[in-house]
Simulated scan of single mutants.
Amino acid sequence: MNSIMLSADQFGIVYNVLSFGLVCMLATTIYTLVSQSRVLPKYRTALVMSSMVTFIAAYHYFRIFNSFEDSYVDGAVKVGTGAGDFNEGYRYVDWILTVPLLLVEVVAVLSLAKAAASSLINRLVPASAAMIALGYPGEISTDNNTKVLWGVLSTIPFLYILYVLFVELSKSLDRQPAGVAATIGRLRLLLIATWGVYPISYLLPILGQSATDPGAFVNRQIGYTIADVLAKCVFGLTILKIARMKSVAEGMKEDH
């Protein structure tokens, strides 16, 4: 267990950042749920998955928020896995559930042939779960060599996901309506750019910032939260945009 001294301002920053993450997840969940009627039925599964992602994230942000508040005693945050500690494990439980769903959303909104969709899902889901599971031992370790080892192992399925998204998935975009392939391309870049924040936050202790350094702790919470909002809320809203584009291309009237 680490004890991290935080000033009142640092406590306020983390408190407000976690609150921001929670409300973004809740708002996106509601918006994607009420937008079901704006797309054709065959694309609603993708929106349901998007709502599931942000709902799961909202629940875990609620737990993270309470964990942070409860762990702050006498100007210090206790970080660990015991009762009353600030537990980063909530983030990893969230990610191991939501990251596979994020990838399935992309496949679902494209409405590919069953064989092609199954092939992509069967490769992306196990790889994403392995990526998160392999990162957790390094996250909770205080030894830099252990962090590097598990970080490298976690990178292997990450690189495989990149291959599937940018090589294999590209083969399925040729028959998409005008504008959809380009939007999917931007969606993949958004996913990779936001995922890039996680390893940076993960590596802060290795890059010279002590595990008990208040600045490193604050920066990690800011980085993780901003990345989560972009990778889940903005990602989900982009999935909705793609579903709308495809629905309109297939004859559904646009809203005015």
Rank of each mutant, 00 (worst) to 15 (best):
K147P: 01
V104N: 00
D228P: 05
G236Y: 00
L102C: 12
S154M: 03
F217L: 14
A57T: 03
N16L: 14
Y90N: 10
L33S: 01
G251V: 08
A178Q: 14
F166N: 13
A129C: 14
L169C: 04
W95E: 05
D228W: 10
V234K: 03
P214S: 09
Y198T: 05
V148P: 02
G84Q: 06
A130Y: 08
H256T: 14
L26C: 04
L165T: 04
L237F: 12
D174N: 15
L102P: 01
S119T: 13
T142N: 08
R186N: 15
K78D: 07
S51E: 11
G80W: 01
L204R: 03
E69G: 02
L120G: 03
G82D: 11
L159N: 07
S141H: 04
G251N: 11
D143R: 08
S67I: 07
I226S: 09
A83W: 05
A182V: 12
V79D: 08
L40K: 09
P157D: 05
D85H: 07
T194Y: 06
P177E: 09
V229S: 09
K232T: 15
A8R: 10
G179C: 11
G251A: 10
A182G: 10
E139H: 00
I222G: 04
L103Q: 00
V218S: 08
K246P: 02
A181S: 14
A181K: 15
A8E: 15
L33W: 06
K147C: 08
Y90I: 07
Y163Q: 05
T155W: 06
L40S: 06
L18C: 08
L159F: 09
E139W: 00
I192D: 02
S247I: 03
S3K: 13
Q209A: 15
V77Y: 01
R38L: 14
A115Y: 11
F62V: 06
F235A: 06
K114P: 11
I156A: 11
A46H: 07
L47T: 00
G82A: 07
Y59I: 15
Y31P: 00
I242R: 00
R175I: 08
N87S: 06
V53L: 09
K171D: 14
D94M: 15
L190C: 07
G135L: 00
F20L: 14
K42G: 12
P41T: 09
V17F: 10
